[in-house]
Simulated assay, not measured.
Amino acid sequence: MQLSRDDLKRAFRTMFTIRAFDERVEKEFAAGNIPGFCHVYLGQEAAAVGVCFDLSDRDWIGSTHRGHGHCIAKGCEVRGMMLEIMGRADGLCGGKGGSMHIADMSKGMLGANAIVGGSPPIAVGAALSQKVLKTANVAVAFSGDGGSNQGTTFEALNMAVVLNAPAIFIFENNGYGEFTSADYAVGSPSIAERAKSFGMPAECVDGVDFFAVREAMGRALERGRAGFGPYALEIRCSRIRGHYCGDPQVYRSKAELAEAVRNDPLARFRARVSEAGLLQRQEFDAIETEVLGEIEAAVAAGLAAASPDLAALTRDVYVRY
């Protein structure tokens, strides 16, 4: 599907929002304004935006511990996210979920998940609900190369095929499960080929290229919406930063880190679109200025907001049916 100028602006704006948001999260974490751990999505922006670009609020996604990019790509509001990460009462989850558990059902965001391989079985359940209700919507499971080794993931892949569920499995292969290289820990050199063995179509795509990711996701969406069952995408990408904020990354060479920075999805997007004469530098700059203002306002709101009251500690722990 051809992208309009407005589409291109939206794609770049979303990618830059992810970049600016997580760069600011790093700073606020270092300043002591964010509790717990944070895992930023820097370097993988084209993957989340390419996957989510043509999804609606009625399509579901499940995320990972590195979920800020998925949340923003799915439409979660950055102010509510920043307040949530800072542990504030007005955050998207009342300040009780934090960085690794952001959810927004109104946007089809089932939640980030600190359990490795936790998203695929949840997404299969969501996909089955779409099938039963005959909605023509899909459910998307994000996981990584580490999550690809989990038994829950194998069971989810198999169940999606057996039940012909409209589930799309996204494996963001950034080369590391926490600190362990995929070359060492993943027996098959191709996660996509492994997914095929369960009986579904699968392909591997360049995760630095927004257009390639979106096109591949389009094939998966067409199949899922038409009722032909699951699909898997292995998206090859690179972390610009470490596993968590403050990770010294002694397991990566300086050359590898430099290559990850050079292989920047935002820079590639700007170059391709500019060379084609579709958007001008001033348009990109205007988007960046606007987004940076929004991030600044979100941080200011977070720093000024109140923490949850003590009574909130036991609220929402159990659901009564």
Rank of each mutant, 00 (worst) to 15 (best):
A312D: 10
G111C: 02
S307I: 00
S274A: 14
I122A: 03
G229I: 05
L42A: 14
D59C: 05
S99G: 06
Q280A: 14
G80R: 04
R225W: 05
P189A: 11
R268N: 07
A226T: 10
L292S: 13
G80E: 05
L133T: 13
F169K: 02
T289A: 15
A300R: 15
F211P: 15
V162D: 11
A258M: 09
R223N: 02
M15G: 10
A141R: 02
E28K: 08
D59K: 00
G118A: 04
V273K: 06
Q2W: 00
A156N: 12
L303E: 07
G43V: 14
D183F: 11
V138A: 05
S148Q: 07
Y231C: 01
S106D: 09
Q2C: 08
H101D: 04
I18M: 11
A48P: 05
I85E: 09
H39I: 09
D309L: 00
R66A: 11
V208D: 14
E259I: 08
I240M: 15
G146T: 07
S119P: 04
G62A: 15
H243F: 10
E290G: 04
L83S: 04
M159E: 02
V161W: 01
S190I: 09
K131P: 00
V213C: 10
A306F: 00
L92P: 03
R262N: 12
S4A: 14
V186S: 15
A195Y: 03
G108D: 08
M109P: 05
M100H: 00
M82Y: 01
E288G: 06
L92R: 02
Y318N: 02
E172H: 13
L278H: 12
N174C: 14
R281V: 09
A47I: 08
R262Y: 06
I72T: 07
D264Y: 11
V273R: 06
F154R: 11
C76W: 01
Y184L: 15
E28A: 11
G147S: 14
G277W: 12
T152W: 00
P189Y: 03
G67Y: 03
